[in-house]
C-alpha cells in the first residue's frame, strides 16, 4: 500500500518537472510572439533602420545573418564531411585517429565567446581580415564544425556495410565506392546535420561580437570584407546601446520573434527529417 503511494507521488513529481519545463519554454515563446507580432510589418522586414534605430526595419540584419550563416556552412561543410569520411571510411584505428576524435569532442565543448576571441586573434588581427563577414563566417564555421562532423559520421555509419562490400566486390575502388555508393546514401543524413547547424549559427552572438558585427549600417553589406548587422547581435545592441530604450525594445521584440521563428522552424525541419530518415532505415 505504501509502495503505491510512493509511486504515485514520484510519478507526480516527474510529471511536474516536465510541465514546469514546458511551461517556462512556452512562456518565453508566448511572450516574444505576443509582443513581437505588432512590431512586424512589411516595412520592418524590408527596410533598413531609420532615425538612430528608433524606426524603420531590420532588413540589413536579416541579410547579414543570412550571409554569415551561408559563409559558415560553406566553410564547415566540406571540411566536416571530409573529416567524417576520413574517420569513418579510411581511418586505421590508430593513435592519431583517437587524437582527432578527442579534439573534435573538445572543440564541441569550447565556449562560444572563446571562439570569438580566437576569431579576433586569428582572422581579424593575424590574417588582417578586419571585422568582416569573412572573419565572422570563418569563426562560426569552426564553431559548427564538430556538429557537422558528428552528423555526417552518423549518416555514414547508417549506410549498410554490405553496400560497401558489394561495390568493392564489383571491382570498384575505395574512392569510387565512397563517391557513388556511400555518399549518395548518406546525403539525407548529412543534410539534416547541415540544417541543424544553420539553426545554431543563425542564433550565435558571442562569436560575432568582435569579428563581424556592427550595430548600425545604413545599407546592406557590400562585400565579404565589410562588417555587417546580424539579427542576434541586433537584439543585444538594441537593449544595451542607443538612446531611446522604449522604442528600441519594440524593435528588439520584432527581431527576437524573427530569430525565434527562423531557428525553431529550421531545427524542426531538421529533426523531423531525421526522424523520418531514421525510421526508414529500421525496416
Amino acid at each position: 500500500m505504501r509502495k503505491d503511494i510512493t509511486q504515485k507521488l514520484g510519478f507526480a513529481i516527474l510529471t511536474l518537472c516536465l510541465l514546469i519545463t514546458l511551461f517556462f519554454l512556452g512562456a518565453i515563446i508566448f511572450f516574444i510572439a505576443i509582443r513581437g507580432i505588432p512590431a512586424i510589418s512589411w516595412e520592418f522586414l524590408t527596410q533598413p533602420p531609420r532615425r538612430a534605430m528608433t524606426e524603420g526595419g531590420v532588413a540589413p540584419a536579416i541579410v547579414g545573418t543570412f550571409y554569415l550563416t551561408l559563409g559558415a556552412i560553406a566553410f564547415a561543410l566540406p571540411l566536416g564531411v571530409a573529416s567524417a569520411i576520413y574517420l569513418n571510411e579510411y581511418s586505421p584505428r590508430s593513435f592519431v585517429v583517437n587524437i582527432i576524435r578527442m579534439s573534435i569532442n573538445n572543440l564541441a565543448g569550447v565556449p562560444s565567446v572563446v571562439f570569438g576571441l580566437f576569431g579576433l586573434a586569428l582572422f581579424v588581427k593575424f590574417f588582417n581580415f578586419g571585422v568582416s563577414i569573412l572573419s565572422g563566417s570563418l569563426t562560426l564555421g569552426i564553431l559548427i564544425l564538430p556538429l557537422i562532423i558528428s552528423a555526417s559520421q552518423e549518416a555514414l555509419m547508417a549506410v549498410p556495410q554490405s553496400h560497401r562490400e558489394a561495390s568493392l566486390a564489383l571491382g570498384a575502388t575505395h574512392w569510387q565506392t565512397i563517391k557513388n555508393i556511400v555518399l549518395p546514401e548518406a546525403l539525407p543524413g548529412i543534410l539534416t546535420g547541415v540544417i541543424l547547424s544553420i539553426g545554431r549559427v543563425a542564433g550565435e552572438t558571442a562569436p560575432i561580437l568582435f569579428t563581424a558585427a556592427a550595430f548600425y549600417m545604413r545599407g546592406f553589406p557590400r562585400s565579404l570584407m565589410s562588417e555587417t548587422m546580424a539579427l542576434p547581435y541586433h537584439i543585444y545592441a538594441l537593449m544595451t546601446e542607443g538612446t531611446r530604450p522604449d522604442k528600441q525594445t519594440t524593435i528588439a521584440y520584432g527581431c527576437a520573434l524573427i530569430l525565434l521563428v527562423l531557428v525553431l522552424c529550421v531545427s524542426a525541419i531538421a529533426i523531423i527529417l531525421r526522424q523520418k530518415h531514421r525510421s526508414s532505415y529500421v525496416q
Binding site: S162, H163, A169, G171, T173
Partner: peptide, 19 residues
C-alpha cells in the same frame, strides 16, 4: 586488390542491392 575483385565476383548472404 581492385583487379582481383574484378576477376573474383561475390554474391552475399543477404541481398544487398544499392539504393
Amino acid at each position: 586488390v581492385v583487379e582481383i575483385r574484378r576477376k573474383v565476383g561475390m554474391v552475399f548472404q543477404k541481398p544487398n542491392p544499392f539504393a
